[in-house]
């Protein structure tokens, strides 16, 4: 069975240890255009361009995935689930902050919406809709190296 394809949350791309390890973990690795936009904001603000970000993604074979209608639809559903559980009063600053974050997180997670995709993230609690498929990257690395990664979706390598 082939290793699970991975969607990476924004901060995972900025983790040196994980990025060095991932180049020897040979599977599909993508980031959402929304994660790329967050990274681009940081790189342009700090360095004036995305040149070193782009070179890093290219050399480590992490591609920026397309965001199409299917991902947009899933994003809408994830936002609904997140905001439905938040119990915040609409119109308040708190609501707006949660809404803003929910959109970005949901768009990032939309690429890992279905098995056998995994989302590597340092904020597993932010992605309740992915359940066990949202993984801390360090835990994931340990599981891969020890051969204990959970494959409840065994046999679904065709999707």
């Amino acid at each position: 069975m082939c290793p699970s394809p991975l969607a990476l949350d924004t901060n995972v791309v900025l983790d040196s240890h994980i990025m060095h390890w991932l180049r020897h973990h040979h599977t599909v690795k993508v980031i959402s255009p929304v994660a790329y936009a967050e990274l681009a904001f940081g790189y342009i603000t700090r360095l004036g361009s995305t040149k070193s970000l782009d070179a890093m993604l290219f050399k480590t074979k992490i591609r920026v995935e397309q965001f199409e209608m299917a991902e947009a639809r899933i994003t809408g559903e994830f936002v609904r689930q997140l905001m439905g559980g938040a119990r915040l009063a609409p119109g308040t600053d708190e609501f707006r902050r949660a809404w803003n974050k929910a959109w970005r997180d949901s768009a990032i997670a939309s690429h890992a919406a279905f098995s056998p995709w995994r989302l590597l993230t340092f904020e597993r609690n932010g992605f309740p809709f992915l359940g066990w498929r949202a993984k801390n990257p360090y835990d994931f690395k340990s599981q891969i190296l020890s051969g204990t990664e959970e494959r409840r979706d065994l046999g679904e390598e065709d999707e």
Binding site: L14, M19, Y43, L53, A55, M56, F58
Partner: peptide, 8 residues
């Protein structure tokens, strides 16, 4: 590429 990409 990683060294340069992660410098900041």
């Amino acid at each position: 590429a990683l060294e340069q990409g992660l410098a900041a």
